[in-house]
Design a protein around this nucleic acid. Structure first.
Length: 756
DNA sequence: TCCACTAGCACCTTTGAAATGC
DNA sequence: AGCATTTCAAAGGTGCTAGTGG
């Protein structure tokens, strides 16, 4: 039984307390079937012991730094990245292509894990395809409730996960904010970054002890309702088996379509001079002719380079990512807020992604792939469509393609872009990694009322892989600069994973508030966050063990009229002991970003110059394993010098990051147990806002809230109360499983919107 | 007028049940 | 009768395109 939380105030999970919490708070009226009273009863019925798992349980210890994840079809992703990956989103939901095909290793074969997918915004910008490239044209729309797609196999043993490729091809993206199918809701024309979370579930009654998050920068994409870049269309058609009909040899190819159209016109216009009809029309006129033409085309195409294996989208024989994460702080997911912070922090960076030629297409595009970032990435960046992300970066951390090493015949000159972009990595001397040091807008951490620095000296390990990143900063106007990959990773890890915030351009270096060149009119990246205040680290942070700050609770979205009720998929029932009805596999996490945005609307976008755009450029197929604890620790690390990064990071062969000792981090102190429901009913338990907390907002617009704009929280796992519920209580949860079984995955929608 | 979005279309793959053969 | 293989149709996934609405 698991539940997840994106932020402390919520306990999510299939039909669990979290559900009650939401209903109770927001729109019980909309969820008549699940009366708050029932929830309360259920909550009360939970044994106290179930809520806060035993801290520091030795049994929860697992080998650290061993969990690794690799993106199997990294080569394909890179191909798209070079052009600027676009993902179609539709009202009914559209699958991602390429899909996420992953390989996990380092798991305990006997333990059970959940594998989740969520997608977070990369920045606060809205984009438009102009002049053949993507350009930021304004501020992002309010962030939608986060939904998490739970892999249908979840929960499964480590042996299970490691024995096969983990695919999230069933996950669908939608732009329907009222989606009731459990699809992941995204805004069109925004950039996103998928994240994979591996959560340990030791048994039905106790889970936690390990949470690993992975980010593959090359999987970031821009959402569209219709493809903007023809190159992307071509790639999709050539790579996606379902689009085979649109290939040149297909009956739905442009040529064939044109012929059909002309034929139609000819047929419809008797007076039309047949001479005016395209000769190719003849192939469409007669079935036999058509067949012949098709055959001929097929023969002609036979000589063409083979397309990538469509079945999987792509099966590059690439070397595994070295990425991975790490930390293994025993984590009881049901624990207090501390638990909410991903205790496992580690960065698994793919050290040198080794791309193997997966397809001819890939070869054509990428030329040759090498294992090192530097060699691979350049090609990837060749034709980036995305505007270069103005990432503050340190040359030392940038996986920059070395022209000398790259096979790319035409080295790309990123200089112009970089120079034009205020936030370009190259412009900054700040190590990208330091981006991880920025602020961490989360509720106060430790029990202690006194603010404490998040980062202890003990958490040095995450600081990255200097060597893996090339000092060069390739930048392409159309796509995020690859060189900034490190920055991206950091951003993702630090922000998204930890805070679940959209990646925002922030000064890499803590305390780096130096203004960034904003001369580029093309790349406008309004950052919500004020210059990264180096601060976070140095600043006293709220006690993470404390419940969500009042401001956040009060900021719950009001637009939602009802809450979606998560249901447990059949395959998960054995694990959760929940009702047989299951519907969606995705958890919908309401995210607070929009809430906070509401709190800091103008301010968040008023200081574009203050922050470098996070645009995490694509990084080589590296995987960023980011334990939440890491993020916090990193972000909070006071003045983390670039040089502090472990050298091992530089070595692609050594993907593992040193384990971070989070024991020194207050928020990871299992001392106090946090119970969202307790806070809900007893607001007084909420910690006092700490006036000393730095504000990320512009001074001109002082935040009314304790937290910076786009605050989001790490994926939080909480022990599922159901296991402890007596049979009589369980029916309460079942009542809300209106969903139907979703054959492609489980969606647990915890948003505040009505989803059913 | 421009642009984002939608619905319907044709083509294709996937999937699972039914049919067939051993 | 039981199992494996093949066939077939339905379901669903694609991109394309015309139309719609802001």
């Amino acid at each position: 039984m698991l539940s997840m939380e994106m932020y402390p105030s919520l306990t999510l999970g299939p039909q669990r307390i979290g559900d009650c919490f939401y209903r109770d708070r927001q729109a019980a009226a909309h969820m008549p079937m699940f009366p708050p009273a029932g929830c309360d009863m259920a909550a009360k019925a939970l044994p106290q012991r179930m809520i806060p798992p035993p801290p520091n349980d030795p049994t929860t210890k697992t080998p650290k730094d061993e969990v690794k994840m690799e993106l199997e079809n990294a080569s394909l992703w890179k191909q798209f990245t070079t052009v600027g990956t676009e993902m179609i989103i539709t009202k009914k939901g559209r699958r991602m292509f390429p899909g996420l095909r992953l390989k996990l290793s380092g798991l305990n074969p006997s333990l059970r894990y959940l594998v989740l997918l969520d997608i977070v915004p990369l920045d606060n910008s809205r984009y438009r395809f102009q002049g053949g490239a993507w350009q930021a044209v304004g501020g992002a729309e309010a962030r939608l409730p986060d939904r998490v797609f739970i892999h249908p196999d979840s929960p499964a043993t480590g042996a299970h996960w490691q024995s096969r490729t983990i695919s999230f091809h069933h996950a669908k993206l939608t732009n329907n904010t009222l989606d009731s199918q459990g699809h992941i809701i995204l805004h069109s024309l925004h950039r996103y970054q998928p994240r994979i979370h591996v959560i340990e579930a030791r048994d039905v009654l106790r889970w936690g002890g390990g949470q690993h998050s992975f980010v593959f920068p090359e999987t970031q994409f821009l959402t569209v309702t219709a493809y903007q870049n023809n190159k992307i269309t071509e790639l999709k058609i050539n790579s996606n088996p379902f689009a085979k009909g649109f290939r040149e040899d297909g009956m739905n190819s442009k040529k064939q379509r044109d012929a059909r159209q002309k034929r139609k016109i000819c047929d419809g216009t008797e007076t039309l001079d047949i001479v005016n009809c395209d000769p190719c029309d003849s192939t469409e006129l007669q079935p036999q002719q058509m067949t012949t033409a098709t055959d001929l085309q097929a023969l002609a195409l036979a000589s063409l380079p083979p397309l990538p294996n469509p079945s999987c989208g792509f099966r590059p024989e690439e070397a595994p990512y070295q990425a991975s994460l790490v930390q293994e702080q025993p984590l009881d997911l049901g624990q207090a807020f501390m638990a909410s912070q991903m205790s496992d922090i580690g960065i698994s960076m793919a050290n040198g992604m080794q791309d193997m030629p997966g397809s001819d297409v890939a070869n054509m595009i990428e030329g040759s792939e090498t294992q090192a970032y530097t060699s691979n990435f350049p090609a990837v960046q060749a034709n980036p469509s995305f505007p270069l992300a103005p990432l503050p970066q340190s040359s030392s951390f940038l996986p920059v393609p070395d022209s000398s090493e790259t096979s790319n015949p035409q080295p790309i000159d990123y200089t112009p872009i970089l120079s034009s972009s205020p936030t370009l990595c190259s412009s900054s001397n700040t190590p990208l990694l330091q981006q991880t040091t920025f602020t961490f807008p989360t509720p106060p951490p430790s029990n202690s009322s006194s603010p404490q620095p998040l980062l202890s000296s003990s958490s040095p390990s995450y600081h990255t892989m200097p060597e893996t990143i090339s000092p060069h900063t390739p930048a392409d106007a159309s796509f995020p600069a690859p060189p900034c990959q490190a920055g991206l990773q950091d951003q993702i890890s630090a922000h998204s994973l930890l805070t679940d915030q959209p990646l925002q351009g922030e000064p890499i270096t803590s305390g780096n508030n130096s203004p960034i060149d904003q001369t580029s009119a093309v790349f406008i990246y309004p950052n919500n966050l004020p210059a990264n205040p180096a601060p976070v680290p140095a600043q006293p942070l709220p006690n993470y063990n404390l419940p969500l700050a009042p401001s956040l609770q009060c900021s719950l979205p009001t637009h939602g009229t009802s809450f979606p009720f998560p249901s447990v998929p059949p395959h998960m029932q054995s694990f959760s002991n929940m009702s047989s009805n299951s519907s969606h596999h995705a958890f919908n996490f309401q995210n607070l970003s929009h809430q906070t945005q509401a709190a800091f609307p103008p301010s968040s976008f008023t200081h574009p110059s203050s922050l470098p755009h996070p645009h995490p450029s694509f990084q080589p197929s590296s995987c960023l394993g980011v334990p939440s604890s890491f993020q916090q620790s990193v972000s909070s690390a006071p003045s983390m010098p670039p040089t502090a990064y472990p050298q091992n990071l530089a070595n692609p062969s050594n993907p593992s990051y040193p384990q971070v000792d989070i024991s020194g981090i207050p928020q990871f102190n299992p001392a106090a147990h946090y119970r969202p429901e307790m806070v809900r009913h007893h607001p007084s338990l909420l910690p006092q806002l700490d006036p000393s907390l730095p504000s990320n907002l512009p001074s001109s617009n002082p935040p009314q809230s304790l937290y910076p704009a786009f605050p989001s929280y790490p994926l939080r796992l909480c022990q599922d109360p159901h296991s402890s519920l007596s049979i009589p209580f369980r029916h309460l949860y079942r009542q809300h499983q209106h969903g139907h079984v979703h054959p492609q995955g489980s969606y647990l929608d915890m948003s505040t919107r009505a989803v059913f």
